[in-house]
Amino acid sequence: MKSRMYKLDTLSDLIKKGKKFWLAADENLLKQLPKGEWIGGTIPYFMADKGGVITNNEIFATELPDYISSTEIKIYDETNLKNVYKDYSGNGITFIIIPAMSKSHLSFALNAPKYDNFANRPLLGWISGVHLNDLGKISAKIINGKNGEISDQKAIVMNITLPDNMISEIGIINIFEQGSGPCFEFFQDGFSSKKALVDGKEVEFAKYVKENKLDFKLPLVADYNGAMINISFQNIDEKTNQVNFYAPVFRGVKYYQAKSFTNYVSEFLNKTPPAENMLFSCNCILNFLYSELEGKTTGDITGPITFGEIAYQLLNQTLAYVNIYKHS
């Protein structure tokens, strides 16, 4: 599969030739690309062939294979994003990019598991972002290559159709496992919490977190029938006395803080599947930062480093990918 970093001119030529792409780059670069069959999201962090890199000068592009018979681009807002699983059927992949901190991001994060036809069609994608130095100054965006539409609130989707003899499968690589500490439960769905149950006992969660010196680099991990789903800590809001997360916690789910580990890259490589069938992957900015991945490679796995990963629902501190297989 052809996923790699491109210079603006080289990629522009390929778009003009009719090649189809999923793109990730700085907003200024994406705006300069010619119109064509592509969608993109903003981000300056990447896992490139040569390792983790931060750049505003290159574009990470996933070229869609020629056997993809049709593509359709659609923009969703927070009111109709609930239709994302049922708008398309058939054999293919729905690829989605959502701007960080947008209404559609918050809506998707909280509600995706309850959408009609949830998980009925492969849905993969990422949350676009900005350089961390630009947080609060500029917004994350998505862009529709077909008409140049840019949004910092709406989600963009490209549905692709695979030939009948091919099938896709979404997977994740999560190096975190539930630790042996207390069980955390929350009273409501949301990106923040004031109170929690810790081993069944109600506590002021911010106070508990501080007193017990929870390491915010280690996410809360829920077991979804064998799939380990992380909720990353963001911070404690001292004014509101609540703990903020990068993804919502859900009522009724039991969370355990992850076990610590010594070396992200070696843990990651131990769990990495072969990349030869991989069309696309993305990894989390928190993994990039906490594990100091700049300049380091993670095997053959490349892709944008994102403000959230989407594999059917929003994920944190996880690598999400899609493989494509031929079958008889």
Partner: peptide, 21 residues
């Protein structure tokens, strides 16, 4: 069942919560 199919894991994990409600 210890599923290998990721979509099944995540669907079942969420379906159990929806059924609980």
């Amino acid at each position: 069942i210890d599923f290998k199919f990721f979509a099944a894991k995540i669907f079942i994990g969420n379906a159990k919560l929806i059924y609980k409600d």
